[in-house]
Design a protein around this nucleic acid. Structure first.
Length: 209
DNA sequence: ATTGACGGTCTTAACGCCCA
DNA sequence: TGGGCGTTAAGACCGTCAAT
């Protein structure tokens, strides 16, 4: 990234017929530092210095945090995915952390189940919340993921039940197949028939969340 | 005009000591 | 035992200067 921004600063500087010395003088750094910054050889670039250099050559530095890749998964999440996978028929091809088929798109399916004539993206949520936002996110992933449907897998916890109550009125169109029925069909290697929310039972000994 | 080498300065992590 | 403080060493930044 620092190489990219440095290159942009250099391009803007050249475009405006400014010398490195002029730009560095205005930004308050030595020409050596300015040169290093433009070439991206500074390991730890001062953001304020970057902003000054950008300003001098007529650029505006914009910094913002965006949702990126998937968060680090915990043992509960892996356990939930493992339990779900154990219910699949051996003929079902299973993969985890499958990226969406869009170049540069950081999103990925937690799991991916497919047979010869159907394919489903699997999302596991150990602490589901904000039902509306979750449904929107999954709708977009289904649209972009080129799948026949989405299987949202939850653990049977108080939080999950509250989540299901929250989305009860709107979930029918997005997830038309009953979770138990989808799980039953997947267990025999059949197409679940559409998107479904599947609630997995708590593991023995697990406290109610 | 630009870049590389060198050295000074600064920051920070690690460690030990002291005290409540 | 844990927090605060001072010391020390390592590493990184950046300016100066010489070379291209």
């Amino acid at each position: 990234m620092r190489v990219l921004i440095g290159g942009e600063i250099r391009a803007a500087r050249v475009d405006r017929n400014l010398t490195l010395r002029e730009v560095c003088q205005a930004a308050g750094v030595s020409t050596a530092t300015g040169s290093r910054l433009e070439r991206g050889v500074l390991e730890h670039v001062d953001v304020m210095l970057l902003a000054r250099m950008c300003a001098v050559v007529g650029l505006e530095l914009s910094v913002k945090a965006y949702p990126g890749g998937e968060p680090i998964r915990d043992a509960a999440h892996l356990g939930l995915l493992g339990d779900f996978r154990a219910r699949l028929h051996p003929s079902v091809d299973w993969a985890t952390e499958v990226p969406l088929p869009i170049t540069g798109d950081a999103r990925a399916w937690d799991g991916f189940a497919r047979c010869a004539d159907w394919r489903y993206g699997v999302e596991a949520e150990t602490a589901p919340h904000d039902g509306q936002a979750t449904l929107r996110r999954l709708a977009l992933k289904q649209r972009d993921g080129q799948v026949d449907g989405v299987l949202l897998v939850l653990r049977d916890t108080r939080q999950a039940r509250a989540f299901l109550r929250e989305v009860e009125g709107v979930v029918g169109s997005a997830f038309p197949v009953a979770g138990a029925r989808a799980l039953e069909l997947l267990g025999v290697g059949a197409d679940p028939g559409g998107s479904a929310i599947i609630v997995m039972p708590r593991r023995t000994g697990s406290p109610v969340a």
